[in-house]
Design a protein around this nucleic acid. Structure first.
Lengths: 134, 134
DNA sequence: CCTTGACTTGGAGTCGACTCCAGGTGATAC
DNA sequence: GTATCACCTGGAGTCGACTCCAAGTCAAGG
């Protein structure tokens, strides 16, 4: 699989794929004799993993460290686990924040909905229905 | 309330507070005669709202637009609602992605846990217990 | 054989969101 | 009255994460 196909399949630009490789986020990809990247199954799965982690906002630096440890073999298993646990906690914390915000947005949207309805019914004032904190 | 106190209370640097104001993310804050910002209740609530939205990753640009509409009064209610709904959907989508990643992390952590246990019990090989996709 | 097109590299540019800084002002403390 | 301190402004710098570009290579088609 050449880079264009991988790019297509995972929705990551070729530039980004090469970038990930040169910063060590993805281990060196297999090449054909003329130097062109020839992604194998394993490379594809690595790309997919990184895509997934990045889509959740895990920082590149932490992922590079993790990937580096994996390359070093078995004696790094605990260190790797620690990284994953730390990132898992950070992720859970971000999600909690987001849930709070989502709830507030839902509430505000509901209030706006009521305001719109009132307006449509041509009632007096919508002002005090939508507390304009901002 | 001066900027330092607001900064302290909401955990946002004074620099960031001034930055938010100059880009229009927060409407101009009240000043005392000598030109020093004197945050009132309403300003505080605006800061809190922005902090909440930003903590969930809502883009500054969308928030500036929203804030601008609020300043323009009632006839922008529907446009504001639309922005909130759009951002709500984007937020929900990001959270869904993150949940997927969280599940994968949890699974990987569990697998690592088993690998560590096996290692501690000095059993044969952990290799095939931890599928090293990367 | 030559053109085309997808690939290669290293390096520079961009973008969002801050963060820092120099130079200046005004109120309070000694 | 002068030193200190928090504040002010406009502008420059930083950071993470790409994204773009110029210049070069190679395989395949006409």
């Amino acid at each position: 699989m050449k880079i264009a196909e991988v790019s297509e399949r995972y929705g990551i630009s070729s530039d980004t794929l090469r970038y990930y490789e040169r910063i060590g986020l993805i281990p060196p990809v297999n090449r054909c004799k003329s130097g062109i990247r020839d992604y194998r199954d394993i490379d594809g799965r690595r790309v997919e993993f990184i895509k997934c982690m990045r889509s959740a906002g895990l920082p590149i630096e932490a992922l590079i460290e993790y990937v580096g440890l994996v390359q070093q073999g078995d004696q790094t298993i605990e260190a790797r686990k620690d990284i994953l646990i730390e990132q898992r906690e950070l992720l859970a914390a971000r999600m909690k924040e987001m849930q709070k915000t989502l709830d507030i947005l839902d509430h505000k949207i509901e209030v706006y909905e009521n305001a719109v309805l009132k307006k449509e019914k041509e009632m007096i004032q919508t002002e005090d229905q939508v507390p304009e904190i901002i």
